[in-house]
């Protein structure tokens, strides 16, 4: 049931801790069914962005949820938002079921989530005996309660085993197909890559990139490896013409954005290309390259 209905909008949002500006002029939209991956290095402001959306920090600018404004002291618009920030919010003296009951508006909804996350076997025992993974699943379950329009997950795969990771991934996709939007931050980029539909790259508190995953991988950062009949001469040529390249084994690695220029320059110097092949996109490397580019 994916549609283009706008769920959340941030308009020129700046977040402050004391007098320090942590999030700088962030503007983006999240639509129903979107799975947004919020990616950035440690201290980039990912958690602060999430906390700001939840009205937990002082900010300037405008945040609206389905058209209704969210402020630090008015959270009415957050009624349909579920979140797991930093660590799961679990009371150890309650059972898993009671922890869910605390937030659940509909018993049936709760029972369904318990089953979907495979928590039936331990849900009636006290949460103080739960492992990290069990707590994490319970935290995700709390975030998914009451049919939220938007779910914010900070490092959701923390402590999960492979089976649970696959389960959570499937569940996220299932909810997104029904129209729930997700904003997820994770350091396990390969996991995030499997679910997200859009990438929000944040560095130094600034949103430096907001693209669909397809665009991000295929258009902006595709790399090619090439060899010529005289690589030494080609290297010299690239240096003088300001073409970015890296030497890797017998290949010269170049970006897709320089391909036409390279072909043109090589032709002028009558240097023949022996081989030119696209390199399968390595998501983590693309992210690192993009962040490095931004820093430069």
């Amino acid at each position: 049931m994916k549609n283009s209905q706008e769920v959340l909008e941030l308009d020129n949002v700046c977040t402050y801790i004391g007098r320090t500006e942590i999030v700088k002029d962030a503007s983006f939209q999240i639509k129903a069914g979107d799975i947004i991956g919020l990616i950035g290095p440690n201290g980039a402001g990912k958690t602060t962005v999430m906390k700001t959306i939840l009205g937990l920090t002082k900010f300037t600018g405008k945040i609206t949820m389905s058209g209704a404004a969210i402020t630090e002291n008015n959270h009415h618009a957050l009624e349909k938002v579920g979140a797991l920030i930093e660590h799961p919010a679990i009371y150890p003296f309650l059972t898993g079921e009671q922890n869910l009951e605390l937030y659940s508006h509909h018993h049936q909804d709760m029972v369904k989530i318990i089953s979907e996350l495979g928590m039936d076997s331990y849900i009636k025992s006290k949460a103080k005996g739960y492992s990290l993974g069990m707590k994490q699943k319970l935290g995700i379950a709390i975030a998914l309660l009451n049919n939220p329009k938007l779910v914010i997950l900070d490092e959701p795969m923390n402590g999960l085993d492979i089976e649970a990771t696959i389960g959570v991934r499937k569940l996220i996709k299932k909810y997104a197909d029904r129209g729930t939007a997700f904003l997820i931050s994770s350091h396990i980029l390969s996991e995030l890559q499997k679910v997200m539909t859009r990438v929000l790259l944040i560095s130094g508190g600034k949103i430096i990139l907001n693209q669909s995953i397809g665009q991000f991988e295929a258009i902006s950062h595709q790399k090619y490896k090439l060899t010529t009949e005289n690589d030494e001469q080609a290297e010299h040529l690239f240096k003088t013409k300001g073409i970015n390249f890296k030497k890797q084994k017998q290949y010269l690695i170049v970006g897709q954005e320089d391909i036409f220029k390279i072909q043109d320059e090589l032709a002028k110097k009558k240097l023949h290309l022996k081989e030119m092949l696209p390199i399968e996109a390595n998501f983590e490397q693309i992210v690192v390259d993009t962040l490095n580019k931004e820093r430069d």
């Binding site: 002291n73 959270h75 919010a89």
Partner: peptide, 15 residues
């Protein structure tokens, strides 16, 4: 200690 304060705060319409 249980990190529940964030959930309590955002779930409540006012602090």
């Amino acid at each position: 200690q249980n990190n529940a304060i964030l959930t309590l705060l955002y779930k409540a319409s006012n602090k």
